[in-house]
Design a protein around this nucleic acid. Structure first.
Lengths: 154, 154
DNA sequence: TTTTTTGCAAAACCTTTGCAGTTGG
DNA sequence: CCAACTGCAAAGGTTTTGCAAAAAA
């Protein structure tokens, strides 16, 4: 179901380190490619291709949306980038982090919470024991109501 | 986040009972509407609007895709139909069942398993306790690897 | 120079919408 | 008869693709 080969996740402190990895991976470091990386380093949360193309609202250089998609795809193959899908919205992209991350998405307020996979170990075990199923909330998040919204809703 | 008002789920044994409910709900029972209901009664698993429009591959009358979407929307407002979203694919529609149902979707083989919400009570409790989060796998399923695929993958 | 990458335009995919004509009750 | 509904065509939002021109190494 994954279409492109994907390397081990790699984490980088800054754009220069990532840039070196891009070259080491056999890719060229074009200006649009650098812009996408720059946007991802600048973003505090996962962002859409459109937000990246728009330069994150002026904070980084803009780029062509189709180049953004192509670059995100290549960077993901290199293990530098990952993406997830929240609800009906566009895919959201972020730099790979060292540790395994999963997500909880509130379908009421829209908030997406990143959680260390370790902290979900108990949940995973329970699902495995009861259904023989290996849950994975890293690409399609666990959906529901966050505490605040659940309290409001009753 | 839900856009249309939605009534209590209602379950019907056959097309005639559902048809009566459609009328009781103030909707007219047009031929396309009946065709959509017929397709849903004929389907063993959740199906896409396109499959319904195509007459489920010849088993039921075909209909116009835009009418299918409009009808599914109305039937969902009446509590007769529900839908879920699996991976990147189109929305999948099914008749409402009496009991609360949630879904597990295998991202390797694509199989979608329907599970009584009751059977997920322990999982829900664990998620609630650890994250204060009310999980809901009825609209966006719990994604991961089913037992078979997990075994293969190692 | 060679191969990758870009920019732009077009298309693909799923879903929604506008509208004039048809139909159910 | 009249509001609800249909069929068709067009558009909307996200993502992919084709291709000739540009740029990286």
């Amino acid at each position: 179901m994954t279409k492109a080969p994907r390397r081990e996740p790699r984490i980088f402190r800054d754009l220069d380190e990532a840039a070196a990895a891009v070259r080491a991976g056999g890719l060229r470091l074009s200006a649009p490619r650098r812009a996408v990386l720059g946007a991802l380093f600048a973003a505090a949360v996962p962002v859409s291709a459109e937000q990246i193309a728009a330069g994150l609202g002026g904070r980084v250089p803009t780029s062509e949306i189709s180049s953004v998609y192509r670059n995100l795809e290549r960077l993901e193959e290199l293990g530098i980038v990952r993406h997830l899908h929240v609800g009906h919205g566009p895919g959201l992209y972020a730099l790979e982090t060292g540790s395994e991350q999963e997500y909880l998405a509130c379908e009421h307020c829209g908030r997406v919470t990143m959680v260390d996979a370790e902290r979900l170990a108990g949940v995973h075990a329970r699902i495995r024991d009861e259904f023989g199923f290996e849950a994975d909330f890293s690409h399609f998040p666990l959906v529901g109501l966050c505490g605040d919204c659940a309290a409001q809703a009753g």
